[in-house]
Design a protein around this nucleic acid. Structure first.
Lengths: 223, 223
DNA sequence: AGGCTAGCTGAGGGCCATCTGAGGGCCGCC
DNA sequence: GGCGGCCCTCAGATGGCCCTCAGCTAGCCT
């Protein structure tokens, strides 16, 4: 779940965003001042920050500068009532990615937030336990060791990594990886599971649930 | 010198931007339609695109989509007279970074352009491993040795260098380098890959992922 | 304990994605 | 008009990957 930090001294704004963004599935923190916002960001780094330009105490631009110094990649969305050309120029100069003018429609803000997160998300790799799978480079690592997979093996593992700890039946996998136009035996799934297990090494991450399917899960010790 | 491509059917806009941005030290191309814009972008990839949402013929959003498919990193600044929430939402959905509403102050547009370009840092010379590609001088070096490439070879390598370690499918390359109006066999990609590999020499930097595509990557040493 | 069935495994055949060398046609330049 | 460079096509060779198969193992039920 993505974390969003909202820094604004206007309670009607923070309350609106807290409710609206929570409803959209984000984990929302709010701070009424720059100092408080920076403290929260330091404790639990958010995935994105919505920052009011006009703040009591520490200036919004100063907060932006400090957030950036801690994480130059962090997406920050500026929020403000002022709409002069000078402000915009200055904010962009400090490296804000985007700028929304109050009053705004919630959907517009949401769309921009999602656009920012998507930009970031697309490049990021999937992780589970000590496994890392990068869809862009088509690479897989177990710890620091690279695991070289063929096209099908990769697609199979990718399917598991997108929904770890969820049981996937053989017919589901057949559909997801081989496509619904495949008419062979489900034994092919077993064959490729074995192949994957072998390449990924120990300890085993793909467990068999007899009569049900397979699941990507760390073997919990003693149960 | 940074290249900016302006796609807009309104001559007063293109003329204004051509003069204004040239004065600021940019190299400006303009296109009155989406088709023409895409063609220019394919021939000489710009550093940033200013794109009108309302275009005759090919829709602005469609142009955006195609520009993005060729280079996901390319900064695109949408420009439009419409200012409805729906448009903004849709444009962000397609991955526009920014949005400027007509009429605009030139300084605001300029500030946003500069902010985008700064984020992207120097595009002037692309590097990967011991490869260097300079889009301005159209030169390529492998280590200290210059590699002389033809126009197509250069565009192909350029496409790879803009997104190193990312898998590019043959159909993607066909689209990005040859254009979507090419109807020949994908074998042409294989032929040019071979040609590039030969000219670039060893160790091989363009790897084949059978059934998936090609990727610019140093062969990870056996681990 | 024994039987049944789901799942595991090793080997191998064949197909097709990719590689490769050769060559034809077009265009700009001399 | 001739020449050279570049783009594209084609067809044969290669071998990696996908899939099958048959025998084996092991969980589960009676």
């Amino acid at each position: 779940m993505k974390r969003i930090l909202v820094i604004d001294d206007d309670p009607s704004i923070t309350s609106l965003l807290r409710r609206g963004l929570s409803y959209e599935g984000f984990q929302v923190s709010t701070a009424p001042s720059g100092e408080e916002g920076l403290r929260l960001a330091r404790e639990t780094p958010p995935d994105l920050v919505v920052l009011d330009l006009m703040l009591p105490g520490l200036d919004g631009l100063e907060v932006l500068r400090r957030l950036r110094s801690a994480d130059p990649q962090l997406p920050v969305l500026m929020l403000t009532a002022r709409d002069t050309a000078e402000d915009q120029i200055q904010a962009f100069g400090f490296g804000a990615e985007d700028y929304v003018v109050k009053p705004f429609r919630f959907e517009v803000l949401l769309a921009r937030i999602q656009a920012r997160l998507r930009q970031r998300q697309a490049r990021s790799e999937l992780r589970y336990a000590d496994l890392r799978l990068n869809p862009e480079s088509h690479q897989v690592f177990r710890g620091s060791r690279e695991v070289v997979l063929t096209g099908l093996e990769f697609r199979l593992l990718h399917t598991f990594m997108r929904q770890p700890e969820r049981v996937l039946s053989k017919s589901f996998l057949l559909d997801a990886v081989w496509g619904s136009d495949f008419f062979g035996d489900t034994n092919i799934v077993e064959v490729y599971i074995k192949q994957l297990r072998q390449k990924l090494g120990e300890p085993r991450l793909i467990q068999t649930l007899r009569g049900v399917g397979y699941v990507l899960r760390e073997k919990s010790p003693g149960r």
